[in-house]
Every structure is written in C-alpha cells, then in structure tokens.
C-alpha cells in the first residue's frame, strides 16, 4: 500500500503515530519502515523527521532496517529462558542458517528475540508475524519453518 492511503485513514495527529507506523510496516510487506515511509509520516503529521525516527527506533517491534518477509520473534523472557529458549534458539539458528538479529539470504526470515510474549503457560513460545507458537521443540520448529518455506 502506498503510504498516503494508510496515512489518510487516521487524522493527522501525533497520537496516531504508532498506529500509522505499525500499519505502514505491516501493510507494505516489507516488514520495516523505509525513509520514504518515515518522511511521508513526518509530513502528514507535521512533525520533524527526528520525532518519527526517534519513535521508530525506540520501540523494539518497529524497524528502520530491512527485514525478511517473515519476522520470527522468539520469547527470551525469564520463564521461556528457564523452559528451554536457549536450545530453541540454537535449533532455529541452525534451521535458518542465521544468527539472532539476522535475515536469511533469501530474504524470507528475520530471526529476533523478544521480551515476554505473555504465553508463559506454553513456554517456549515465539511469534511469526502475528501468529503464536508455543511448547516449541525441535520437531515443532522444523514443521513450522518448513510450512513457511513452502508457503
């Protein structure tokens, strides 16, 4: 979606900044905010570039750096950590061939860590884009990643 269409859905008030940034990031299919996006937002809201960029870099779910088509957010809260997150991380890194913070060369996945996802009753958990996955183990991970690769 071009930025202007997304922008016009919201009144031009700074209080809508986070909503707009989410929509631009998720609606673009790019999973990150380009400088063109940020510039359009600044102009639309009549605020400075730094006001937009400062917000975009403060919040961990927003990115101003290119990311893959799917963003994996692995929970590294104390609970998931205790319940096996480090092992899950290793498995994921092997499956994807990238380390945490990196994007697969084919541009399909970006692997990130997240603060508590609030799914502690099914630790270890992760999100891929908007979808949750809990009780993760090696077979489950292989299945899930495989499905995304095929899709």
């Amino acid at each position: 979606m071009v930025p202007t269409q997304t922008l016009r859905k919201h009144p031009p008030l700074q209080e809508n900044l986070l909503l707009i940034l989410h929509e631009l990031q998720n609606g673009s299919g790019r999973n990150y905010l380009t400088e063109e996006d940020l510039q359009a937002v600044a102009e639309y809201l009549n605020i400075t570039r730094a006001a937009v960029y400062g917000v975009a870099t403060y919040y961990s779910m927003l990115s101003v750096k290119p990311r893959g088509r799917h963003v994996i957010r692995l929970c590294k809260s104390p609970v998931c950590d205790m319940m096996g997150a480090p092992g899950v991380t290793r498995i994921l890194e092997e499956l994807l061939g990238v380390a945490v913070g990196e994007t697969t060369p084919d541009g399909v996945f970006t692997l990130e860590e997240s603060a508590c996802l609030g799914r502690c009753d099914s630790a270890v958990s992760m999100m891929i884009d908007g979808q949750y996955y809990g009780a993760l183990d090696a077979p489950a991970l292989a299945r899930i990643i495989g499905r995304f690769r095929r899709g």
């Binding site: 809508n16 917000v55 961990s60 927003l62 997240s114």
Partner: peptide, 19 residues
C-alpha cells in the same frame, strides 16, 4: 510497539501521545 516501560502509567501516556 514493544516496550515494557510503557506499562508504567506515565510512560504509557507519553507513548499514547505518539512519543
């Protein structure tokens, strides 16, 4: 958008204002 601190009430208000 991914900030634990925004659960603190005054910080939440800042965030609500788009900051």
């Amino acid at each position: 958008a991914g900030s634990y601190l925004c659960g603190e009430e005054l910080t939440l208000l800042e965030s609500l204002e788009g900051k």
